[in-house]
Amino acid sequence: MRHLTPVPDPKPPPKLAEREEAKPRIAELERWATVLRIDCVRMLAVAKSGHLDSSLSAADIVAALYYRVLRHDPENPEWPARDRFVLCKGHAAPIQYAALAQHGYFPLEELMGLRQIGAQLQGHPDMRRTPGIEVSTGSLGQGLSMCVGIGLALRLDGLAETAHVFGVLSDGDCQEGQTWEAATAAVHFGVPNITAIVDYNHLQTDGTTEEVMDIRDVRAKFEAFGWDAVEIDGHDMGQVVEALERSRTLRKPAAIVAQTKKGKGVSAMEGRFGFHGKAAVSPEFAADALEELMATLEEQTKALHEEGGGES
């Protein structure tokens, strides 16, 4: 299946220095989100298991972070003053793997080993096996506490002014009580450099979040815990970037509740229940999904060319 082999993006990610000099434009980021989505479909089609819909839901957030907002350097992954990214919803690992591979943390071919015995990429992020993973996740509810710990350590090292911690949470994360322990602690300890992005896609394993266990107004909850809290459309790249960049200037815990659609970008999956964790990516499904995403990519690439330069 030749179409499943990952290919390097003809428009490679900008290096750290380039990003700092000229921030990638929204349209570019949208295109890169599609690149990551395509990688996810390919990976899952080969792996035959994993959480595609969960990965696609977070694609725009992850693209905004890795291609623009995060201060990270694949050539120096242990750089102490780097920003930290924590995928609290660790089951969406493929989307992070795609971003890491595209940035050169490991070869693109590794993506095809996802979940296979002896391969580097585990079902959930593993800091001991995969470069670029800050902490292992996969057990819902623990991630935000880890972010608080990282934020405190950076502050003790005098790095909190520059190094920011970004955690991506899910509906399930917000159902776990521990997340609210962490939310309490972040404010109590005055962690200045933490942003929690909730990928609020209203779907979980057993049904809609409203049916299973309604978490209601997550933004209001974070606000009640003393966080700065905004709500955005998690697939509107302009809003995503603005909220992320604003959050790092606040010097207080910041929550971004991103309204999203599970499976975003693949219309057969978008916002639909019944895909979570299923080996839904049959060769036919993958072919259709890839066709749709390739068309999107082509459109976005063309638009970029026509647009030429433009402001950030």
């Binding site: 102490p80 930290r84 800091m127 800050e134 902490v135 509810g141 623990q142 991630g143 506490s145 880890m146 972010c147 608080v148 710990g149 990282i150 934020g151 405190l152 350590a153 950076l154 090292d157 009580g177 521990q178 322990e181 962490a182 309490t184 602690a185 109590h188 300890f189």
Partner: peptide, 21 residues
């Protein structure tokens, strides 16, 4: 860091602290 009666949070925070040196 006294986290209050929140043991789970304490252990995961320690993970983050240790992962950061």
């Amino acid at each position: 860091f006294n986290v209050g009666a929140a043991e789970a949070n304490m252990m995961s925070m320690a993970c983050g602290l240790a992962a950061t040196g």
